[in-house]
Simulated assay, not measured.
Amino acid sequence: MFAPLQNDTFLRALRRQPTDYTPLWLMRQAGRYLPEYCATRAKAGSFMGLATNVDYATEVTLQPLERFPLDAAILFSDILTVPDAMGLGLSFAAGEGPKFARVVRDEAAVAALEVPDMERLRYVFDAVTSIRKALAGRVPLIGFSGSPWTLACYMVEGGGSDDYRHVKSLMYSRPDLMHRLLAVTADAVALYLNEQMRAGAQAVMVFDSWGGVLADGAFQEFSLAYTRRVLDQLHRGVDGVDVPRIVFTKGGGLWLDQIAGLETDAVGIDWTVDIGQARERVGHRVALQGNLDPNVLFAPPAVIEQQACRILDRFGAHPGHVFNLGHGISQYTPPESVAVLVEAVHRHSRRIRAKA
Rank of each mutant, 00 (worst) to 15 (best):
A13R: 02
E66D: 15
G211E: 05
R120Y: 10
M48H: 12
L34F: 12
P69C: 04
Q63M: 11
D313M: 03
P140L: 01
P23W: 01
Y154K: 09
R28D: 05
A152W: 09
L297F: 05
S77A: 15
V60Q: 07
R105E: 15
Q306R: 14
R281Y: 04
I311S: 03
Q220M: 11
L113A: 10
Q331T: 10
F47P: 00
I79G: 00
S77K: 10
G89V: 04
V54K: 13
N295Y: 09
M118V: 14
A127V: 08
Y154F: 14
Y56N: 02
L5C: 02
E263D: 15
R279C: 02
F100G: 08
G240V: 06
F323E: 01
R314G: 08
I311H: 03
L193N: 08
A266Y: 08
T150H: 02
I275A: 07
S145N: 10
L62P: 00
H348C: 03
D176F: 13
V156S: 09
G212Y: 00
S161H: 04
Q289G: 10
P301L: 10
G137K: 03
V128T: 13
K355A: 15
E96A: 15
L113S: 06
M155Q: 05
L50S: 04
V206S: 04
G160P: 09
Y21V: 01
D71A: 07
Y192E: 03
R285S: 08
D242H: 15
Q220N: 04
V204G: 05
F222I: 09
A51L: 06
V128H: 05
G97P: 14
E336K: 14
L151N: 01
V60A: 09
A108C: 03
P140G: 02
A44W: 00
R228N: 13
G49P: 01
M205S: 09
E336V: 12
V342G: 07
V303R: 14
P335K: 08
I74T: 07
T129Y: 05
G159M: 01
E119I: 06
Q202M: 08
E66I: 00
A111I: 06
G200D: 02
L292D: 05
V267N: 02
A299C: 14
I275L: 09
P4W: 11
R132T: 02
E114Q: 15
A51G: 11
G251V: 03
Q277H: 06
P69T: 06
W25S: 04
Q277L: 15
E280S: 12
W255F: 10
R165G: 15
E59Q: 14
L177I: 11
